[in-house]
Write a protein that binds this DNA or RNA. Structure first.
Length: 255
DNA sequence: ATGGTGGCCACGCCA
């Protein structure tokens, strides 16, 4: 079984890339972020033809998250009960006994900004939400664009990034608070080459120069972490013409 | 040099 996370930066633009990648990678479940479309524009038919059930929590222009699955998606939920939010950033569903929560965490723009304060409030809400989900579902996977690089080695140049947005201590503390619930950063269960990232700025030839960050993560509860056999970043879609600025992250399981 | 690239949408916002 494979559970993946991918920020596609507009699903309508990236649908051909997504369909090609689904065929090549054969993930069982995919959390998609930044669909940037309303539910009426979501390509249910194309994804069904590709063999995937889908659930979407969309809005116009910004944000928007979806779950794709080869098996039916059960008990779909589109908000965090404990945190009211007009922005569409969460979707959760149960697939074959595994609860999958897919999140698009607030970017935060700049440390100290209003959006940054919203990001920290949002992450506190996420912690509370996931704490309750873990009570209900021992097998929990949390896919997402977290917009947090957990450690200096998750940046191409700590001198540039440390203390700034995506890398500030309060953001990292909020990420650790999620792990403190009993979740594992699945990527760190395995060894990876230095400079393994999931996002590269479109500007300044960031991908070609590997000026990246690791900000997309699949967190796993203990039972799933114990069954996880590997985590990979798929660079192929990032090499294409008109790519998303993010690459897919795939966690693989024995079951 | 406070730029730069891209998506949305039609100008500025957001990342």
């Amino acid at each position: 079984m494979k559970i993946a996370s991918w920020n596609v930066n507009s699903l309508r633009v990236r649908l051909p890339h997504l369909l090609d990648w689904l065929k090549a990678a054969e993930p069982d479940v995919v959390g998609i972020q930044e669909t940037k479309c309303v539910d009426e524009q979501f390509p249910f038919a194309e994804l069904e033809a590709a063999g995937y059930f889908a659930a979407h929590n969309g809005q116009k222009t910004y944000n928007g998250v979806a779950l794709l699955s080869r098996q039916p998606l059960v008990d779909v939920c589109r908000d965090m009960e404990c945190f009211a939010d007009e922005q569409r950033r969460v979707i959760a569903a149960t697939v074959g006994g595994v609860r999958v929560v897919n999140v698009y965490v607030v970017n935060g723009q700049a440390v100290g900004s209003e959006k940054y304060e919203y990001k920290l409030r949002w992450l506190a809400g996420l912690r509370q939400y996931l704490e309750a989900e873990l009570q209900k579902y021992p097998k929990l996977a949390v896919t997402g664009d977290y917009n947090i690089a957990p450690a200096p080695e998750d940046t191409h140049d700590p001198a540039v990034w440390e203390g700034g947005i995506l890398c500030s201590e309060p953001e990292r503390a909020a990420f650790r608070a999620l792990l403190d619930l009993g979740l594992k950063d699945s990527f760190r269960l395995f060894d990876h080459p230095p400079g393994t990232f999931t996002w590269w700025d479109y500007r300044q030839a960031g991908f070609r120069r590997n000026l990246g960050l690791r900000i997309d993560h699949v967190l796993l509860s203990e039972p799933l972490a114990a069954a996880c056999t590997g985590v990979q970043v798929h660079l192929e879609p990032r090499r294409l013409e008109r790519p998303s600025d993010h690459a897919p992250v795939v966690s693989e399981f024995t079951v």
